[in-house]
């Protein structure tokens, strides 16, 4: 029986399923990345390796459109991630270090509400709301909508991190005559830093990723990268879209890698590697 019980962790076919899973996950991305280097006007035939479609993205006919869209996407992601991270950090301190209070379950439900409401419903509701109060749709409406749905994504990693920090650190600091503000600034905040960075990165990428809500609340004449790509793809996939998609793919992979290393740092007990916050 010993042999059989050693095998209980292995099931035939599970490894092939895992491989199939990986192929399904990566094949479309790999194919698009490969064809983005295709030196041919047709997206079907392979015409040799070239960077021409990357040059086209930056200097071609649609370069201005893409540059504006990229600027809007990145600046909105930067502002929305910053605002939602600050809001979420404050909320997590109130929730975790604020003792017990009656509105706590309701507050938590409210924070996770953007995760529960389907994106398209949030999009419709936000569009109707801005139109009802007569707010002109544009950059500001996109930004506000992004801050709202980024809050839970920033909140969850920060809260998880804060929950793992024992109160004894702050108490030790105060025993050593640190003021409350100093205990917060020099002890609690640096300990929270990995969670805050992870929350910020997640919020940033979620904002950059959003299509549906942006598409509803953006109004005419302003585009973000996803809405610009969507508009272009509606008229058929062109080679420059493949190049642009590959660039966005690289940005995403860069982000995951950073967040992977940040969260690994956060795993270390006590977070001694936490960076200085000044």
């Amino acid at each position: 029986m010993a042999l059989a019980s050693r095998n209980i962790r292995k099931y035939p076919g599970f490894f092939s399923m895992t491989l199939l899973c990986m192929v399904l996950l990566y094949a479309p991305l790999a194919v698009v990345a490969a064809y983005s280097f295709n030196d041919s006007l047709s997206i079907t035939r392979w015409g040799g390796f070239s960077f021409r479609w990357y040059l086209d993205v930056f200097f071609g006919l649609e370069a201005d459109k893409f540059r504006d869209a990229a600027w809007n996407s990145l600046s909105i992601a930067f502002l929305a991630a910053t605002a939602s991270t600050i809001i979420a950090t404050a909320a997590s301190i109130g929730m975790v270090r604020g003792g017990e209070f009656r509105a706590k379950p309701a507050s938590f439900a409210l924070i996770s509400l953007p995760l529960m409401v389907p994106e398209i419903v949030t999009a419709v509701a936000t569009l109707i709301f801005f139109s009802a109060i007569g707010f002109v749709r544009g950059y500001a409406t996109i930004l506000v909508a992004h801050i709202v749905f980024c809050i839970p994504f920033a909140y969850l990693p920060i809260e998880a991190r804060l929950r793992g920090i024992e109160g004894t650190f702050e108490e030790a600091a105060q025993d050593l005559y640190a003021s409350r503000g100093q205990a917060f600034r020099f002890v609690l905040l640096p300990l929270m830093a990995p969670g805050i960075v992870a929350g910020y990165l997640l919020a940033f990428i979620i904002s950059l990723d959003d299509f549906i809500i942006t598409n509803f609340v953006k109004g005419a004449g302003i585009e973000t990268l996803p809405t610009a790509i969507f508009g272009a793809v509606k008229q058929g996939i062109k080679p420059n879209i493949l190049a642009l998609s590959t660039l966005m793919l690289l940005i995403s992979i860069g982000f995951v890698t950073i967040s992977y290393f940040v969260s690994r740092k956060g795993v270390k007990p006590g977070g001694h590697g936490a960076p200085e916050t000044t």
Binding site: A27, P28, V32, Y35, D209, I229, L242, S245, M248, S252
Partner: peptide, 14 residues
Amino acid sequence: WVNLLVRTVSMKFL
């Protein structure tokens, strides 16, 4: 983490 639109367009392309 890769943009949902990029992934869907990639699938369409494939």
